[in-house]
Design a protein around this nucleic acid. Structure first.
Lengths: 337, 337
DNA sequence: AATTTTTAGTTAATCGTTTAACCTAATCTA
DNA sequence: TAGATTAGGTTAAACGATTAACTAAAAATT
């Protein structure tokens, strides 16, 4: 079933069929009806490949993730991806997923879908090597970054309100009368963590609580559960009087929680803990974790919407969106005893 | 950068370039070198659309999921999908995902990627309306079913060893000296649940334990946590002496666990519970759930492998694979007191 | 030495669309 | 009423590959 068959059946030229499909005004209502009937009867649908070849539009969006984020099937980016998939449906896009090495290899290569011109735009989720960003730029495809903003150039991005999250988490603890509050982070040079810390700091300042360097543990290698455990160990050693912890993500929060328990304290009676992300198990842990919920699926969804706008408007103006966060109060925080 | 540019640069015809790309033996080593150099220098990659148009191969695989499985971002099928994505890389495939209504609508439509001839084959994950299966068949594309086997025709499928899982779960309980063992299921006409039950029954028989109808609760509407709770309620009412429960999946197992606790029993001291699936939270629940691990990512991975074989061998012989399961002993089961 | 076969390419048709350029008859315009 | 518009199409040239059919020169066979 090709456009030829439709043309024959409707007794018009293939050009007419194509024009009808694109709803061109030059075609009379009468002819439109004839053609549309033929299309319906033959159950005709234009071939993607043929269409793509001539129009240089594939109807596909590329989605780039770093290997570590994909491999460990980390729920966070998986959720972003699923959100994007979902919204892609509404815009009749298909998503092609690929992973790239997290650290720049000697031979940083572009994803195959870029080289083969198989996508109309690209969504990049999470922090990727800068080398890749500059390679992508050469291809002048619309790009939307998610939870990452490449330095040195205007870009379109969907970002998390990390500052607001850090602020709300901290203010929650302050409202519970905590004053000796610690921040647990991994690599503080990572923008997300940095901003969460900035929010933390801001909240302390706003309530005239002095910042204590002993309440600032950011020398772990990553933000894993193990690092959370180790960070909490250090914290309890140098500052045994701490009554509340804001961990820069849920994984570290769980690690810290484990350590605090192991050291004989109880959560939240002795020490309150707030996380960030609201991963699945925050709902089922013991105690259930108070945390900052990041609307992960919405991040992906917004990315696709933004991409759609970029593809529709020929004037590619870069634009950023920040999605809101929400404090989820559970049982790992309580009024200071 | 098209094949023309390469041809010009290498001073050969475009046909020669194409033949070199396909490693045709008719081309001399010398010319091959010339062409390959030109390809490298221009960083040329054939266009997917052009290639697809003439060769009728897209390099894409369609992945069909029912809406309910996708919407609730159910980890089970998500994991299968991710496993497929991962393996797709190794075979240079891209995966196009789509969802279909779980129950046959009046107007069951084929996925767009089928109509637009945008995939070389289709993976169907989970139970889909039969109407869809027959529609798909008309297009004579290779199809691989995952965790589902359509009745009435030979198909290629990747299946879970449900029987073996039911058997192992039950034998584990028997080895712990349990004799009064209940089966909790949802819709028993669903093949997976049926087979898990068959394994349960087989294990009882093999150890000469009579099957008691009071130990067979399968009248819940679904296999959710809530249904598990309700099923356990019924069970405890009609058979208070039960010492072990085999729930047909983890969700029901958690529901049952909650009910058992609420009724004042303790797990596993009073009642042992085994689940099926090994979802993420089975690792963190209290007590941690003994369950049958299903290698979810491997299911998706095998599906892609099978698809690859179907696409390579022109003789489309349907073939089924069963992936093994594994009993994961945790703390929800113990020796009968 | 004449004929056949092999080697190493090229030419040209084709895949299924889109769309600029063209055409013709009907309708306006002055 | 002649010339200019407009309406409603059609023709034909792309898009960027693949591949069957062809060709010319070199090598092998008789």
């Amino acid at each position: 079933m090709t456009i030829k068959d439709v043309a024959k059946k409707a007794q018009v030229s293939i050009a007419t069929v194509s024009l009808v499909i694109h709803n061109n005004k030059r075609i009379s209502e009468e002819t439109k009806l004839k053609v549309n009937n033929a299309i319906k009867e033959l159950n005709y649908h234009p071939s993607r490949s043929a269409r793509g070849l001539v129009s240089q539009k594939t109807g596909n969006i590329g989605f780039i993730l770093t290997e570590n984020h994909f491999l460990r099937s980390e729920p966070f980016y998986t959720q972003i991806f699923l959100g994007a998939e979902f919204e892609a449906h509404n815009h009749e896009f298909y998503i092609l997923l690929t992973t790239v090495p997290a650290i720049a290899k000697s031979k940083t290569k572009l994803p195959r879908f870029v080289l083969e011109k198989n996508v109309d735009g690209i969504i990049v989720a999470g922090t990727v090597p800068h080398k890749l960003v500059s390679l992508l730029d050469e291809h002048s495809l619309p790009i939307v970054y998610v939870d990452y903003y490449p330095e040195g150039k205007e870009s379109s991005a969907v970002l998390i309100d990390n500052f607001g999250g850090g602020k709300e988490a901290t203010e929650h603890l302050i409202q519970l009368h905590h004053r000796n509050i610690a921040f647990l982070g991994g690599d503080i040079t990572h923008p997300s963590i940095k901003h969460r810390f900035d929010g933390f700091k801001w909240a302390l300042d706003a309530h005239a609580i002095p910042f204590d360097n002993n309440n600032y543990i950011v020398d772990e290698v990553d933000t894993s559960r193990e690092s959370g455990y180790k960070a909490a160990e250090k914290l309890l050693k140098i500052n045994p009087g701490v009554t509340a912890i804001f961990a820069c993500n849920d994984a570290m929060a769980f690690g810290a929680m484990q350590c605090v328990k192991d050291e004989g304290y109880s959560v939240p009676q002795d020490i309150s803990i707030v996380g960030f992300d609201d991963v699945e198990i925050a709902r089922t842990s013991d105690p259930e974790l108070t945390t900052i919920a990041v609307p992960k699926q919405e991040l992906g969804c917004e990315a696709v919407r933004l991409m759609n706008r970029l593809l529709e408007s020929k004037t590619v103006t870069s634009h950023s969106v920040t999605v809101g966060i929400e404090l989820i109060k559970r049982n790992s925080t309580a009024v200071k005893q």
